[in-house]
């Protein structure tokens, strides 16, 4: 067991020298979570807008589902996606289990409800202010949605960032469907879990600090964008 100082020194060394293993893990993490966030936004924002602006049969059921999925523990969602992707499951033919594809799918399922629920709230608030004005201008529904999405872009950007933060920091879903395979499906959070349990604190610390830096950058970008768009 190394001392803490040694671990920190080694972690720092890994980061500044751009250690290949470290880099590989970080890049895969970003690839998986960015892709999942983009897909989740592409599906979740229109769903949020639909729930905020339209009434249809079974809407309460969709709302219930979205709200429930939003608070689901990632491991449980991982388990569901695992069963879908396993050979006996409906998506077994994809042969995605233990690939980055499975991890993207699991994270998309994880954060899509969050994006949908948060954007529903944002758009709902704005919709109540502008519904009559849009109706008066005879704006067709799809155009209302585009206008609303654009009008709420600052808040929706924050929603996307929240989704990304949740994706990149979760461990339960990716470890179940990805399996934490070295060079293939090992991402930052699963690597931290593994290395810590092995007692290799240096890599874990290095990854942990990178994860925190990413969170810092995302928040800085969100704040910066808010200020720029508001001025």
């Amino acid at each position: 067991m190394q001392t803490f100082q040694q671990s920190f020194a080694h972690a720092w060394h890994l980061v500044v020298t751009g250690d290949a293993t470290l880099l590989e893990i970080v890049l895969l993490s970003l690839r998986v979570s960015v892709t999942a966030t983009l897909i989740a936004c592409a599906l979740g924002l229109p769903l949020g807008a639909l729930l905020a602006t339209q009434n249809f049969r079974g809407k309460w059921l969709v709302n219930l589902l979205v709200n429930t999925l939003m608070g689901m523990p990632p491991v449980v969602l991982g388990l569901i996606v695992y069963m879908m992707l396993s050979n006996a499951g409906p998506l077994g033919w994809l042969q995605w289990l233990y690939t980055p594809g499975a991890m993207i799918l699991a994270q998309t399922v994880l954060i899509m409800p969050i994006v949908a629920a948060l954007s529903r709230q944002v758009i709902d608030d704005r919709w109540s202010e502008c519904r009559e004005q849009f109706q008066s201008l005879c704006i067709p529904w799809h155009r209302c949605v585009f206008t609303l999405l654009r009008d709420c872009q600052t808040s929706l950007f924050t929603v996307g960032a929240a989704g990304f933060a949740r994706a990149i920091s979760e461990v339960g879903a990716v470890i179940v469907v990805g399996g934490n395979i070295n060079h293939l499906t090992r991402v930052m959070t699963t690597a931290i879990a593994l290395e810590t349990s092995k007692g290799d604190l240096a890599l874990a610390l290095a990854l942990g600090s990178i994860l925190m830096t990413i969170a810092l950058i995302v928040n800085a970008v969100v704040l910066g964008t808010r200020q720029r768009l508001q001025s």
Binding site: C130, E132, Q133, S136, C138, T147, R150, D151
Partner: peptide
């Protein structure tokens, strides 16, 4: 309706 316009009691402007 398209030939009519309305100015509401509470003004509404787009955020642009």
């Amino acid at each position: 309706r398209k030939k009519q316009a309305m100015v509401f009691q509470k003004p509404f402007v787009l955020r642009r």
